[in-house]
Design a protein around this nucleic acid. Structure first.
Lengths: 343, 343
DNA sequence: TATATAAATGTGCTCGTGAACATTTTGTAA
DNA sequence: TTACAAAATGTTCACGAGCACATTTATATA
C-alpha cells in the first residue's frame, strides 16, 4: 500500500551509474551525457523518485531568507496587524527548516515602500512576500534586473503585469456582490428603497478594492432588484458628524466598504431599522455588531492569508513544488451568533 | 536577530564532555554522573539548546504510523468523503517526514467500528485519529490498557470522558443558533409564523449532533422571537412524498439539520416563498441553492477538519509540541454569491 | 594491591543528500 | 597514434542526532 521510498543510491544502482550522476540529473546540474541522462530519467520516472526533503534540508546549512515587505502592523490597522500575525506564526514553524523571515515594514507612502523594497532586495532574499499597495510606483523597481528570478508572493493586491509567482487575497468584486445579496435578503421589500454605499475613512492602500466592491454591489442589484436606488459617499476623515447626509432616513441600508462601519454608531441611534453591513472584526465593529447597530460583518481573514502566502512560498523554496498562481479566500459572513468562532 | 543554532557538539565542547554524554542528558538516558549532568544542563539552559528536528527525523528510520479510524468515505456521504480527502491530502505531505497513515474505514455499525478500532490498535500505531460515532460502545475499548499512552485525535464528536489529546469539530448547538438567526433575518416579520425543523434522512452517525442543532435553534428563538412557533419532524427514509405534512403552507421556513435539504425540492415548488436553510455543499444541495429552492447552506468544512486533525497529531509526533485540546471550526454561511469561493 | 565489576564516558557508524574533489572517459588537434 | 584538455563519472566528506559499541574511570571484594 505504502510506496517504498527510493534513495539516490537505489536509482543509481538500477540505472547502473553512480549516485553523483543521479544527483546531477535530479538537480539539473548538467555535465551528464545524454545516454546516462536518459537511463537515469527513465528509472526516476519508473520509481517515481521523490528526494528526501529531510535529508536535503539537513545538508543545506545556509538559511533560506524570505523578505516580507508589508505595511507596518500597528494595532490600529487590524488588517495588516492580523496579516503580520499569520506570517509570523507560520514563520516560527519554518524556522526548523532553515527558513528565516526578514521584515521590512513600511509606512503608507510611496517613498517608504520603495525604500523598504530596496532594502529587502539588498539582502538577496530567496523569495519576497509583499503587499504592493503602491503598485504604480512599483513598476520601475520590478523591471529592474535585481528582481529577476526571485519568486514573489503578492498579498492583498494582484498586479497582473507583474511576474509574481503566487497571489493570496480575495475577489473584491464578488465581495461586493455578496454584500448586496445579504442586504437584499435583510431589507424588507418596500416598493421604493434607497441603499447607501459608504467608503468611510478610506486609506490609500485599499482604495482600488473599494471600487471593485462598489461595482459588485451595484451589479448584483442591477440584476436582481433594479428598483433599488443606490447612492455612494466617500469620506477620508474619521469625523462624519457634519459630513454624513442628514437625510439618512431616506435610506434603508448602508454598505460600508471599509473597516470603519463603527463610525456610524452615533448616527444609527436615530435610525434603529437601518441595516448595516461592514468589514473586518475590529473590536469597535464587534462591539457595534453586538449592540445591533451593525448587522453583518464580512471577515477577510487576513491572518489566514498571511499564513497561506508564507507557506506557499516556503513550500516552493523547500520542495520546488508548483504552486497555485492565485488563491482566493472565501469571504466569511459574521453575525452575532457565529462571531465567537472567528475570534 | 536570528538565534544561532547550537548542536550537541557545541554543547559538549563547552561542558567539556563528549557528545555522547550530552546526548544522554538531553534524552534522559541515564548513565551520567551527577557532576557531568549538572555541567551539561547548565550549558543547555545557557544556550537554550533545541535539538535539530530535521536531523532527528532523518536518523529515525522507522516510520511513524497514524491509524485513521473513520466511516467509509463513500461518495454519497459527502461529510466523511471530504473529511477523508482532507486527511489523505495532509497525509501525502507528511509522507516526507516518515509519517504514514493506515486507514480503517468502518461501516456504520457498532460491530464494524469495534472491529476496525481493534485492528487499528493491533498495529501499535503511534497515534490514532478517529471519529467515535458509537461512543457508548467505545468505553470498554478505551479503558483497555492497549489504548494507554497512544495519543488520540477525535474528529466530529468530542467525548469528554475519553482521554483524548485533541479534538477537531464544530459546536453544533451554536450551529443551530446561527441557523436560527439567519432564519430570523430572512423571514418577513409576520405576526404569527411557524418554522419547521426537519431531521431528514438521518443517519446514526450524526443523530446526537442533530439534537444539539435543534436545541440551539430553539434557544435562539426563545430568546429573540418567542412568538415564533417551531415544529420538529424526523424522517429516516429518503422518500418524503407521503411523509411530509401536507400543510406545509402553514410554515414560513424550514431548517434542515442534515445534508438532505435537497430532498424537499419537489414540495417546495408549491411554496415559492418558503425559506430553507440546510447543510453541506453536496451537488444536489448546490443545485437547489442555485435554483433558489434553498436559500442558505451551512458548510461544515469537513475537509479542513480532516486536514487539521492529522496535522495536529503529526506535529505532536514529530516535534512533541503541546497541542490545542479543542479546535472548533467556524460554520461558513454560503449563499449563491459566495458559493463559488467554497468549491 | 590486585582483580572483578559496574558505572561513566567517548567513538564511530548511520540516515539521504549536496558539493567539493578525484578519477576516468571522450573528443580534438598535432 | 600521441598528447592533452574537456567532459563525464565516481568517491568522499559533511550536515546533526541516535544508538551500539569501545574505552576509560570509579567502586567493591578478596
Amino acid at each position: 500500500m505504502h510506496p517504498k521510498k527510493y534513495t539516490l543510491q537505489d536509482i543509481a544502482k538500477l540505472a547502473q551509474v553512480s549516485r553523483g550522476t543521479v544527483d546531477r540529473v535530479v538537480n539539473k546540474r548538467g555535465k551528464v551525457s545524454a545516454k546516462a541522462k536518459k537511463r537515469v530519467e527513465d528509472v526516476l520516472k519508473e520509481l517515481d523518485y521523490k528526494p528526501n526533503l529531510i535529508a536535503r534540508s539537513l545538508k543545506r546549512h545556509k538559511d533560506l531568507v524570505i523578505a516580507v515587505v508589508i505595511p507596518h502592523p500597528n494595532p490600529q490597522d487590524i488588517y495588516w496587524n492580523q496579516c503580520a500575525q499569520g506570517i509570523e506564526e507560520a514563520g516560527k514553524k519554518l524556522d526548523q527548516f532553515g527558513i528565516i523571515l526578514k521584515y521590512f515594514h513600511y509606512h503608507k507612502s510611496k517613498e517608504s515602500f520603495a525604500t523598504m523594497l530596496e532594502l529587502a532586495l539588498e539582502l538577496n532574499p530567496n523569495a519576497v512576500l509583499m503587499a504592493p499597495i503602491h503598485y504604480e510606483e512599483l513598476k520601475p523597481l520590478f523591471s529592474s534586473t535585481e528582481m529577476k528570478g526571485i519568486p514573489i508572493g503578492l498579498i492583498n493586491t494582484p498586479i497582473e503585469e507583474l511576474n509574481y509567482m503566487t497571489f493570496v487575497g480575495q475577489d473584491y468584486y464578488k465581495s461586493g456582490r455578496l454584500a448586496a445579496q445579504l442586504m437584499d435578503n435583510l431589507v424588507e421589500p418596500f416598493p421604493k428603497c434607497k441603499i447607501l454605499i459608504a467608503h468611510l475613512g478610506i486609506d490609500t492602500d485599499h482604495a482600488i478594492h473599494l471600487k471593485d466592491k462598489e461595482k459588485g454591489f451595484k451589479a448584483y442589484f442591477k440584476e436582481h432588484n433594479a428598483k433599488v436606488e443606490i447612492d455612494t459617499v466617500s469620506f477620508a476623515s474619521d469625523n462624519l458628524a457634519e459630513d454624513l447626509p442628514n437625510q439618512l432616513e431616506d435610506f434603508i441600508g448602508i454598505y460600508v466598504t471599509t473597516s470603519k462601519a463603527h463610525l456610524l454608531s452615533t448616527h444609527l441611534n436615530k435610525h434603529p431599522k437601518m441595516k448595516v453591513i461592514g468589514y473586518d472584526l475590529v473590536p469597535k465593529n464587534i462591539a457595534q455588531l453586538q449592540t445591533g447597530n451593525i448587522h453583518i460583518l464580512l471577515n477577510q481573514n487576513p491572518k489566514l492569508q498571511g499564513d497561506a502566502c508564507i507557506n506557499t512560498l516556503s513550500e516552493h523554496l523547500l520542495y520546488n513544488t508548483e504552486v497555485a498562481r492565485k488563491r482566493l479566500f472565501p469571504i466569511d459572513i459574521v453575525l452575532t451568533e457565529n462571531l465567537e468562532s472567528y475570534i
